[in-house]
Each structure stands twice: as C-alpha cells, then as structure tokens.
Nucleic acid binder design. Structure first.
Length: 484
RNA sequence: GGCCCCGUGGUCAAGAGGCCUAAGACAUCGCCCUUUCACGGCGGUAACUCGGGUUCGAAUCCCGACGGGGUCACCA
C-alpha cells in the first residue's frame, strides 16, 4: 500500500515548534515508507485566519528541508489543497448522511443552545446536544428550510454501546458511545467544521495514516462513525503527545517564544532545531543523537514515539545548536557570522576570518556574538579590579610593572603578525624572569577591557593592530598609575 | 465533574519479569588541560509517584490511590 500522510495546519499565525514537530513526524513517516507527504491548509475558520500565515508555513517547511509532494503551491491529483477552496464539496456529503439517517438538520439557535448549556451546568451536568431537531419530520424540516431559517447539519451519533479503534502509538482505544455528542458537520455559514472537513478530505486525498496531536484521541470515534456511514475505509491512526512548555502548559501560539521564526532570528540553525525536535517524544533506541534528515528518515519508527508529553528544553536545543555551529565548515561559519560581527564591528577594520576562527568554538547562538566581540570595536569601561587575578598571580601593582615592561617591546615590533608578536612577547617575559600569566593577563585586560574574551592577549593584539593595541595599553597604564 | 491517555534523575530518555547495584545525553558540581573564556578529557550529585497484590523474582504484569495531560464548541 502506498503510504500517504499529511500535515494540515490552519493558517492562524507563525508555526510554533509543536506544530513543526508534527509536520516532521508526518514527513519522516511518509519518507520512511517511500510514501507521499501532503500539505493541506485548513482555513475553514475565517475568524482566525491570518494573512500571510500560509506563506510562513511554506517557508518554514522548506527551510527545514521538508518537501511536500502535493500541496496548494505544488499541485497534485487530489486538489485543491486549501480547504476554503473546497467549500462546495462538503455539503453534498453531509446531505448524503442526512438521507441515510446518519445526520440531520438542526435549527436550534446559538442562543437556545447556550441557554440549555447553562441550565445543564446549573444542574451540575455536562451539556450534550439532546437531539432536539432529530425528531423533526421531513416536512417540518423542508418548511423551515423554505422559510429561510438558519440551519446546521449535525451528526447523529449512537447513544449506546461503545466504539473502539486502534492507534499505532496508544494501542487499542475504547470509548462509550454515550460520551459522543452530535457534533456539527456543516456550520451556519455553510462551511464544514474541522471535524467534518477533515474526514472528507483525508478520505478524498487518500490519506492512509492520519497523524495528529493526541487531543483528537477522544473525538476519533466520531470520525470513525462518519467513515463507516459512508462505507469508507478507516485510516491508520498515529496520535502524538504534545510538546510542552513546562509541566502544565503545552507549547502554544500564545507563547511568543515558541515560534520557529523567533529561534531563527536568535541565531539557531534549522538543522539543530529539527534534530532536537525529533528527539522530543521520539528516540531511535540507540545512543545516536546527531541526525541528518536522511538519517532521521532511516531511523524513524512510529512505535518508538513516547506516549507521555515531552517538555521542550531550550538548554538542550542550545547545546545542539552549539554543536552544529562547531561542525560548520569554516567558510560557512564566516558567512553566517559576518552580519552579526557587522552589528558592532562594521567599519572597524577587524579581520573577520581570523575572528571567526576564534569565535566558532565559542558560539552557542549567533545572537550572542555581538556582545562577545564588541570590545574589539570599542574599549569598554572597566574597573582596575580586573587586573587582580589570583591564579595568574597578578594585581594592579604587578600589572603596572608588567605593562611598563611590555609596552616598548610591542612598540618595537615592526612585523605585526601573530607569530612575531607571540615569540617576541614570550621572549621578553622569559628575559624579565616573569610568569606568563603575570604579563599576559594584564595585557589582555588592558587591550580588551573584559575578563573573558575569545582568544588570548596575542590574538587580540593582532586583531586590534599595533596602533590600537598601544593606544589601549596607554589607557591601561594611565589607569594603573592612578590607582597604584 | 464524566470519559480517555500518561507517570524512570531538574529536562530528554534506555528499559518490554531475572543481564538493573537502573544506560546515555543536556543541565549542574569538582578536577585536569590552558595566557582568560570556551572547546576537550576525567570524575561526582541526582530517578523507577505511593500502596496493595501476582511471582522464587517486578521499574517492567494486575488493582487502587495520588499526580499530570487531553476532551466534553457552529476552534482547529
């Protein structure tokens, strides 16, 4: 059997990481089985529709390396792939169900329903539609229709017995039928509800494996009843637990920090995001942690999807990101980091390739880069306390002596290259009978103005250039003379 | 509240009756390397929710409690 899965987001905003993971698992499963991955846009709720959201979905998926075989923009034999464009297709199916007694017209207004709902709540009961309109005769229905009364079509669900189905990750599920409500199939505006459109579309599009969040676990019996009423084959179900923000809340669109685009803006690599996301709720059963998309496809197995929700851990994502950055070819790293350098170093004449070499192993997220290299563009204000470091055996007094010793040495260097600076400085330190740290620490502090820097004194001196190095050294000397 | 699902360290998780004195990873702590920081290396702290069963033997099976999540819309 040709496997066909689908990702069916509603265009209500940016794609958050939970949604991205659903897409990923669907994509992985389809590819793993040489099947097709279909993209369908579920925009039946005009009130929540957000302009441009569909494009964001396309861009995000492509960015992450997930290509769909059929979809709104690429076409396919089962289109259209945008639900609103399929609008007219659903009503006939609903009517068919009305004819066969599996559904019925309902003329109850929202207000009436609301009253009954509140009355039920007042009695401490759960409101369930009472099939009020089921008993209308054919004539009465026609009369109301002719009179132009607003209507909806509801499913006629059984009230006794139970319905079972099998889920690939949760196993066998059974629900008592009396918990099934007569859900609305066609809304008053003529649009199908998600519940209905979803069944019709999945069938029409030949979806063999329905993959979706586990929040649909309990409404699946109602969908199965629909499939049966039509005499259609019920698809295989793969329900997935949610990705949580913390123990109590799942990642949602209301949490701005969960958007894929935000992570990209902060300097996370899409490969790292995908790799990490794949591992929240699923594992390969081995110790392998790093996966390319192809390796993910190869290792993926829906039976290894966990049933319990997984909490999204930015820490681990950040670690993955740092690892991916370290593994980047140097040229690629340089290219990616350049705009981040530019934010604070544009026009400063800093040698980016060398800086990039120094920075690559220290970059966890690109957005941290500007703060880490800003000192090269402008010497920050710093305190003389920085000259004190126990392990380096230095303090302001020692630092003053060290810097006074090293300044003329640096000034005397004509070939300002790292090796020459290194050899000259180290030789001078040895000649003076000093410890490396007693000179190198103060030097680095004087020219960088901060306790930790990417690279040591020599590298920074080279990056800064002779002139700027001496200028900063003088500033440091001045400060030290005033405090000593 | 009814119904459904789930419950191994702070987090992701391996584990499908004896191999568990419970892997691995992130985080955290310590040491080493080192001209700082980072990288890297080594080591440490830290978990089977609880209570009953079943069994020679249970993290693994059963029941209950507790905890968490979901669902009960003309939203998807």
């Amino acid at each position: 059997m040709q496997v066909r899965t689908r990702f069916a987001p509603s265009p209500t905003g940016f794609l958050h990481l939970g949604g991205l993971r659903s897409a990923l698992y669907g994509y992985l499963f389809a590819r793993k089985n040489q099947g097709s991955f279909i993209l369908r846009i579920e925009d039946t709720d005009q009130e929540r529709y957000v302009e441009g959201a569909t494009q964001v979905i396309y861009d995000t998926l492509r960015d992450c390396g997930m290509n769909w075989d059929e979809g709104p923009d690429v076409g396919g034999a089962f289109g259209p792939y945008i639900q609103s464009e399929r609008k007219d297709l659903y009503l006939p199916y609903a009517r068919q169900l009305v004819e066969s007694g599996h559904a019925y017209y309902c003329f109850c207004t929202r207000e009436e329903l609301e009253e009954r709902r509140q009355a039920a709540e007042a009695r401490g009961e759960v409101f369930k539609y009472d099939k009020h309109c089921l008993h209308l005769s054919r004539e009465e229905v026609q009369q109301k229709l002719d009179a132009g009364m607003p209507w909806v079509i509801r499913q006629n669900a059984p009230t006794e017995g139970e319905t079972s189905y099998h889920d690939e990750v949760f196993g066998d599920m059974t629900f008592p039928n009396d918990s099934l409500d007569d859900m609305v199939l066609i809304k008053q505006d003529g649009m199908p509800t998600y519940n209905f459109a979803n069944v019709i579309d999945d069938h029409l599009m030949g979806i063999t494996h329905v993959m979706r969040g586990m929040e649909y676990l309990s409404s699946t019996p109602k969908y199965n009843l629909l499939y049966q009423a039509f005499g259609w084959e019920i698809p295989a179900y793969i329900h997935m637990p949610p990705v949580m923000r913390d123990e109590h809340h799942k990642l949602s669109k209301r949490d701005g920090d969960a958007y894929y685009s935000d992570f990209i803006a902060k300097g996370y690599l899409s490969e790292a995001i995908i790799n990490y996301l794949a591992l929240v709720g699923w594992n390969p059963g081995t110790d392998q942690e790093f996966f390319t998309m192809d390796e993910l496809i190869d290792a993926f197995d829906v039976h290894r999807i966990n049933k319990a929700p997984g909490i999204f851990d930015v820490n681990k994502l950040t670690w993955f990101n740092a690892e991916y950055i370290r593994r980047l070819p140097p040229e690629k790293y340089l290219e990616t980091v350049t705009p981040w350098f530019d934010r604070v170093l544009a026009g400063k004449g800093i040698h980016y390739p060398r800086l990039a070499e120094l920075m690559q192993d220290r970059t966890e997220i690109f957005s941290q880069v500007p703060d880490m290299v800003a000192f090269l563009g402008k010497l920050p204000d710093y305190s003389a306390d920085l000259y004190t470091h126990k392990k380096m055996k230095t303090n302001p007094a020692i630092a003053l002596a060290s810097l006074e010793m090293i300044r003329p040495v640096l000034e005397g260097i004509s070939d300002w290259s790292e090796t020459v600076i290194h050899d000259t400085v180290m030789a001078a330190i040895a000649d003076a009978g000093l410890k490396n740290g007693a000179v190198l620490w103060p030097l680095r502090i004087a020219i960088s103005g901060q306790a930790s820097t990417p690279g040591g004194a020599i590298e920074i001196a080279w990056l800064l250039g002779k002139e700027e190095t001496l200028r900063r050294l003088d500033t440091g000397l001045e400060m030290l003379r005033s405090v000593n």
